[in-house]
């Protein structure tokens, strides 16, 4: 099975966000970037499927700036066979243009499985995997936390509101990965050395016109400072009274 893993370089989750002077993007000064947390599960699952089948390939791809090489090199060190950087300096936030560019590239390579994280923690879109599947005509199952492969058919489990869904999914497929799917491995020294000899392709990508244009990026209004209604169990009546006054009780 030839697997493509889509990854994204994003600001670390403990980053305090500042808005850039253009009012439409973040100020990258002092921001640490890392591999999107959910993409770790996608990469790990790809490596496990290749190990299970003892055949096929794992190609890791991203759209982003040249600095993404660090995250791609890390993926190679963990075991991916090939890395592809579709380079752009734009903030990759727009679902349609991103999915279109990725789909166009995927159509040029052997691929019967695309694995993604459930969402990137910068744009928080949670739409690329199903969007990509629609453009490729692939089957799709999203937010998967358990996945088994038998004879080219996946059985996936995912949480829905108040229940768990068991989904069967044919190949070719796009699967988006959620926390709980697996425990990602880290690169060891041998992997890091081996990565240096693996193919790394960089080519520019045109994202084209955006289906959604940015009007503004703003910080949300701070919540008004609250009120400590009291200390200990004696404060319960005051809390009840306060909640009744604003009619939430």
């Amino acid at each position: 099975m030839d697997i493509v893993v889509c990854i994204k370089r994003v600001p670390a989750t403990d980053t305090a966000i500042k808005i850039a002077a253009d009012g439409k993007s973040i100020d990258p000064t002092g921001v640490t970037f890392e591999l999107n947390a959910y993409d770790e599960f996608a990469l790990e699952q790809a490596l496990r499927i290749k190990e299970q089948l003892n055949a096929g390939s794992v190609t890791v791809v991203t759209i982003g700036p040249k600095e993404c090489k660090k995250q791609l090199d890390d993926a190679l060190a963990r075991g991916a066979d090939k890395a592809v950087l579709l380079s752009t300096t734009e903030w990759v936030y727009d679902g349609a243009s991103t999915a279109a560019a990725l789909a166009a590239w995927i159509k040029t390579v052997p691929c019967n499985l695309v694995l993604c994280g459930r969402q990137a923690v910068d744009s928080d879109n949670n739409q690329l995997p199903a969007n990509l599947a629609g453009r490729l005509g692939f089957a799709c199952v999203t937010e998967v936390s358990k996945l088994a492969l038998d004879n080219g058919v996946f059985t996936a489990e995912r949480d829905i509101e108040g229940a768990r869904e068991v989904v069967t999914c044919k190949t070719p497929a796009v699967v988006s990965c959620h926390k709980g799917l697996n425990e990602p491995r880290y690169a060891n020294l041998k992997g890091i050395m081996a990565a240096k000899k693996k193919p790394f392709v960089e080519q520019p990508v045109q994202l084209g016109s955006k289906a959604m244009e940015i009007v503004a990026l703003t910080l949300p209004p701070a919540r008004a400072a609250g009120k400590i209604v009291g200390t200990g169990v004696d404060a319960v009546p005051a809390l009840i009274a306060a909640l009744r006054e604003i009619k939430v009780l």
Binding site: D94, G95, A96, N125, N126, Q127, A130, I160, K210
Partner: peptide
């Protein structure tokens, strides 16, 4: 929702248009 997140991006792709989520 779990269904909305799974379904509407695919709908947007088939309509060849954009999508904004959440």
């Amino acid at each position: 929702t779990a269904m909305g997140k799974d379904l509407l991006p695919r709908v947007s792709a088939l309509l060849d248009t954009g999508i904004v989520t959440d």
